[in-house]
Amino acid sequence: MVMTSGFFRLLSDLPKPVWRYPISYISYGAWAIQGSYKNDLLGLEFGPLLPGNPKLTGEYVITHMLGIELSHSKWWDLAALFLLLLGYRILFFVVLKFKERASPLYRKLAAKRTIQQLEKRPSFRKMPSVTTSRRHQPLHSLSSQEGLDSPLHT
Rank of each mutant, 00 (worst) to 15 (best):
S5M: 08
R9L: 10
L10D: 01
S12V: 06
L14F: 02
K16N: 06
W19H: 09
Y21T: 14
Y21D: 10
P22Q: 03
P22L: 07
P22T: 02
P22A: 00
S24M: 03
S24R: 09
I26K: 09
I26Q: 06
W31K: 05
W31Y: 10
A32S: 06
S36V: 08
Y37S: 04
Y37E: 01
K38E: 08
D40E: 06
L42T: 10
L44F: 08
L44C: 14
F46G: 00
L49V: 13
G52C: 00
P54G: 02
E59A: 06
I62V: 10
I62R: 01
H64S: 09
H64V: 02
H72I: 13
K74R: 14
W76K: 14
L78H: 07
A79Y: 09
F82V: 15
L85Y: 01
R89F: 06
F93Q: 08
K99S: 11
E100W: 11
K112V: 04
R113A: 09
Q116S: 10
Q117G: 04
Q117M: 11
E119I: 12
E119V: 11
R121S: 14
R121P: 00
F124L: 12
P128C: 01
H136Q: 14
H140R: 15
S141P: 10
G147M: 10
L148M: 11
P151H: 08
